[in-house]
Design a protein around this nucleic acid. Structure first.
Lengths: 225, 225
DNA sequence: CCAAAAGTGTTTAAATTACACCCATGC
DNA sequence: GCATGGGTGTAATTTAAACACTTTTGG
């Protein structure tokens, strides 16, 4: 491999990543937002994101922005690129192309606080967010669409839950993402039939009858796509 | 909107597009390839593509590259971005991020010749291509996957055909893309049931019994996605 | 009348939907 | 013993898959 110069006329653009990071809280799907501390759009809420560093892969940049703009400590259980936003005027600072990523964080990722250049970070209900900076509402909409698609294909719902979980909890994840109610009996039938769950033997007590705990069956990791 | 400077540390990268353009020829799915005339990878076959110009939208760049690198005269009937390839070392000239596009050209787009910096352009069977430059085989593989997905969702198969077409022709498109045979009776049942085809009244004669001609039913344009 | 491709229906299996009551526990 | 949430089965409908022969035309 020879090292060659870029041809003349090759547009140099700012390369950024944005991350729509989802998690479940209180039976509702939440998305992680940060409050911007700088112009443009200072004080507006936005998806975490920023510029890719030299020598950094796209997914590494996505992870870094997630970690530094928020105090999220946990590794995402799923991370995928889903669309690239490149409209000329999407950012007033110049031509900035953003490769948007979808991330799933496990349950328990509750407390976040701002970091880096942000004033703060918060989990907000994904289906009703405040006005967002730039074209981030469009990015979020597309992320939600992709999330719903992935629910059917991959077992992506499992990534929202801890290692062991109950069937009503899993159903709650589906309902929060699809934004509609599902029939309990049909849901259980379908999920158990596909054989990707193993009963752990334990049960979880709370109010009402204790629920059977399940875990992901061996050899059913979410495919890489 | 204030005009602001890019922050320090913002990576500037070369922004490119590549296009996997498909069409049907002789009952086989073909992809449009160009033979490179310059380093790197001179004389290798590659997907048409190149750098985005300043002030040019991503899809405009994709269309321009398609037109200038090949002599394809027709408008694509479908064009969508499907993945962004950004690995650090995918191009020996430096950090070049390519937004890959999938295009569908209508039937009849037969003759192509090289243009611009290419030595030539050719339609090649999509499922068995020569060794390709850069990571273009990976791009093509992903394009084929996306094409198969779209077949189910949207009526993307119709975009491969002229305005009027026969059911056996349409089935041929499905079979070429899915790379397997389909049952004639079930295929017709399914397609006619979904009500997106209207018989034109005409028939097409050739060898054997003449076939009924159909056209796309009104109000069933392929969704924008 | 023969070759070639178009066209047509039925049966079976599988998947999806709708739907209502009993069970186990904590207080 | 009662409130709370967990758990279970069946019938009806829809959808998908398998499968072979007849029809129309040109030569």
């Amino acid at each position: 491999m020879t090292d060659l110069a870029l041809p003349r006329g090759a547009t140099q653009v700012g390369l950024a990543v944005d991350v729509a990071a989802f998690a479940m809280h209180a039976s509702e799907l939440h998305v992680l937002l940060v409050q911007r501390g700088e112009l443009p759009h200072a004080r507006d809420w936005a998806l975490p994101g920023g510029f890719v560093h030299p020598g950094e892969e796209l997914h590494e940049a996505a992870l870094r922005e997630l970690r530094t703009e928020t105090s999220v400590e946990l590794e995402p259980r799923h991370l995928e690129q889903f669309f690239t936003f490149g409209e000329i005027n999407r950012d007033p600072r110049g031509r900035i192309v953003s490769v948007a990523h979808l991330a799933v964080l496990p349950h328990g990722t509750v407390s976040v606080s701002g970091g880096g250049h942000t004033l703060g970070a918060e989990w907000m209900p994904a289906h009703r967010t405040p006005k967002l900076a730039f074209d981030h509402q469009a990015i979020l909409d597309r992320a939600l669409g992709r999330l719903q698609l992935r629910l059917e294909y991959a077992n992506l719902a499992l990534e929202f839950l801890p290692d062991t979980f109950t069937l009503p909890e899993l159903q709650g994840v589906y309902e929060a993402i699809l934004n509609r109610k599902l029939d309990k009996r049909n849901f259980r039938k379908r999920l158990l039939a596909q054989g990707s769950l193993t009963p752990s033997g334990e049960r979880r007590s709370g109010v009402g009858r204790p629920a059977q705990l399940y875990r992901r069956a061996k050899g059913t990791r979410t495919p890489a796509l």
